[in-house]
Nucleic acid binder design. Structure first.
Lengths: 348, 348
DNA sequence: TTGTAGGCGTTATCAC
DNA sequence: GTGATAACGCCTACAA
């Protein structure tokens, strides 16, 4: 262990400026409660010595850490990376620092991560989606740690959240597909177990087709884990029968990209032979050929909004509700009507 | 501010177990220095009360936080997101937590972020690439905070680092391009100012073509900021003259994807009319059509290795050197020889 | 093996 | 407006 040179402390600054530690502390935390002359002198010393408050000490004395924790499935996924980046930027803007943990898609370790974050004094915690063991919510509540759900919004659920309505968004897309005349529908859904976002999307889609009177057997659903490859495999299965779907709706863009690429391999023209839709509108959606008709989600806006909401919860005891964010459909060339006519933006 | 329920403290546990706080502390930090009978009794109380050590207090008393900080340009970029995810996973594996900051590509705010991380008691710090103000290195050194550079490896540079040799990697690719018979070369480089990774790549490429005697005017270089769109714009410029290059080598895959898409728009066939190469081998590289010939970088391996290296530096005072990671060329269909024959994997 | 007591750096509550 | 001073919760010599 290297012998850490002693960092300058409040005391050092106080001595150097010829005032008490209390005054230095005030200069930093309540600048208006100190007269300008002394303030200038103190701040000059702060700068000269390169003083930075000691975190542990401050946490202990003030019972605040200006740290918030986030637990996400993984950063290695464009939809979380994007929002998390914006979340962190906004946190920084407001003087907070981000502590991250990831479950690597193993929900069973989330409880432990929550404990770790709380033990580290996180002033608030960000979680993705609603689905999790009730014990986690209870633990957080018992410790009075402000907790915000992101990437989902369900007006029925009392948990404070910042996100969009996955179900309603998918309903809009499904209705669009229906209006394009499609009556044989294939669906590639992400894993719904323990993932309310995927589940809501699937529900939204079923809602619409049922309402419109689509016979049950005309809707074929395959559920599969995340990944380009998995999307391709599921697509091949859906297209295998003798009455293949005219459109394959995917639970997210990554699955959809897998489907598109598999279609190419199978010498199927998208969208003439089969239409494909996605969800999320990640960068990939515009780059694949043909570009995906998908649901655009304001990831960065959501990240920023989540940061502001969570900090407000921490600082003002607010508990929302926060207004849902709006998603919107992006019409692109991967969706055609039942006659093969594309109404979206042509490639590219 | 919600009134936080008072968490159990060491003292509470000590009282409940009828021992001193020192004993409780030892049970937790040096279990073998306490007799089994009392240890059992103490640990039972710890569990019953749901005691967790207070982080701030522990940090102050022990001068260790089991926290490491990372400062990256942005999480919203596949190459950092991947490595960072692996870094975090390995940190967690070894009992550490990750504090993240991002510069959003504004190097001038890095110094401040470093201070913040150090003030928060980060036991070590991860930085991307070598290029930065010397004052930052001095600050870190003066505080004896173990600092590791990632995403780059330069054997000339004494800073401990975990990464690969950007220059040598690009040299290998450039030689391959040369061997394919290309003699009119276009280059789209990322911004080299303050970015040694981009600069080294460009150097590697110049090295090879100069060595092989390529006339100076046959190498046209455009430097541009990161982004698909920027890649496209640069590509259009390079192809504008009456002696356009037969190959366009890009500093990263994102620029290359921009180039490929712009080529489509310009009705140019890749690679028959012009070859295009990338660097990084992100997922996109395999999805774009044609797939990119590029340099594969082991992002996850690098993230894990960085975590291990940094923790070793923190715990054992090691300062490396750590062995460089190996990149390798991925031959795919975006590169053809000068006669238009593809030797890489055909699409897809 | 276990207990006592000092100190870590800050904030907050009082007096002055 | 400013200065003492008492917490805050834990670790770790040092003593017993």
């Amino acid at each position: 262990m290297p012998a850490k040179p002693k960092l300058p402390t409040l005391d050092d600054v106080a001595k150097a400026a010829g005032v008490s530690t209390a005054t230095v502390s005030r200069c930093l935390n309540a600048p208006d409660r100190v007269v300008k002359a002394t303030k200038d002198r103190v701040l000059a010393e702060v700068a000269r010595l390169g003083y930075t408050p000691n975190f542990g000490a401050r946490a202990m004395a003030a019972k605040r850490t200006f740290t918030v924790g986030a637990i996400i499935p993984t950063m290695d996924n464009a939809i979380f990376a994007r929002g998390l980046q914006a979340f962190q930027e906004q946190l920084h803007e407001r003087g907070y620092t981000l502590l991250v943990s990831s479950t690597s898609y193993r929900p069973e370790i989330e409880a432990e991560q929550v404990r770790t974050l709380v033990a580290r004094g996180a002033d608030g915690v960000l979680l993705i989606g609603y689905d999790r063991d009730a014990a986690i919510y209870e633990y957080l509540a018992s410790r009075s740690v402000p907790t915000l759900i992101a990437w989902a919004y369900d007006k029925e659920n009392p948990q404070p959240s910042v996100g969009f309505d996955n179900r309603a968004s998918m309903q809009a897309l499904a209705q669009l597909v229906w209006d394009h005349g499609h009556r044989r529908i294939g669906v590639i859904s992400g894993t719904t177990q323990g993932n309310d976002r995927a589940r809501r999307r699937l529900e939204g889609l079923r809602d619409v087709f049922a309402q419109n009177g689509l016979p049950h057997e005309a809707l074929k659903v395959i559920e599969t884990p995340y990944g380009v490859k998995n999307g391709g495999i599921a697509f091949a299965k859906l297209m295998a029968g003798d009455m293949p779907p005219s459109v394959v709706m995917c639970g997210n863009d990554v699955l959809a990209v897998g489907a598109v690429r598999r279609a190419h391999l199978m010498k199927l023209d998208v969208p003439r032979d089969v239409s494909i839709t996605g969800f999320d509108d990640i960068e990939l959606a515009r780059i694949v050929s043909p570009p995906l008709t998908t649901v655009h989600v304001p990831h960065r806006k959501m990240g920023r909004a989540a940061a502001n909401a969570l900090i407000d919860m921490v600082e003002t005891d607010s508990i929302g509700p926060f207004p849902p964010l709006q998603s919107k459909i992006r019409m692109r060339a991967s969706l055609a009507d039942i006659n093969g006519n594309v109404t979206g933006t042509p490639d590219p």
